[in-house]
């Protein structure tokens, strides 16, 4: 029962977030601080697998990711299960360690966006 609720809430959250705010979030030169090793590694993962549909965290073929407070679990869920038109990325493609780095990078990417005009 608990998990059912959890999944339900997660689904609602993802849906509302994805459809509600599809059109925002150009990054505009906020320099993303990649001094932390995990963030630098996550940036590479992002560019190989995510950038083409979510360019710079902004809207493209997929919705913007840098304009909403997506919790790490929601990102992880979306990437592993790939809902809607988004493909799933399993452990043999993006390892658990790469996933941690990816999420670290995406959090920095969102913060960087907040600082730009």
């Amino acid at each position: 029962m608990k998990t059912t609720y959890a999944i339900l809430i997660l689904c609602c959250l993802l849906f509302v977030i994805a459809c509600g705010t599809a059109k925002r979030g150009t990054p505009h030169y906020a320099s993303v601080a990649t001094t932390k090793e995990a963030v630098a590694k996550g940036e590479v993962v992002y560019n190989i697998y995510c950038q083409k549909c979510h360019p710079g965290g902004a809207t493209g073929v997929g919705p913007a990711l840098n304009n909403k407070p997506l919790p790490g679990t929601a990102i992880r869920f979306q990437v592993r299960h790939g809902m809607g038109m988004m493909p799933a990325f399993k452990e043999d493609v993006i390892s658990d360690e790469e996933m941690d780095n990816l999420i670290a990078y995406m959090k920095v990417l969102r913060k960087a966006k907040d600082k730009t005009k």
Partner: peptide, 25 residues
């Protein structure tokens, strides 16, 4: 009620807003 709603919610999510939104090139 939640249990009965769940498949519907999943469907909603899986049907995806990408399909619903129009192109904005």
């Amino acid at each position: 009620l939640v249990k009965r709603l769940l498949p519907f919610m999943l469907l909603l999510v899986l049907s995806s807003c990408y399909r619903i939104l129009s192109s904005e090139g």
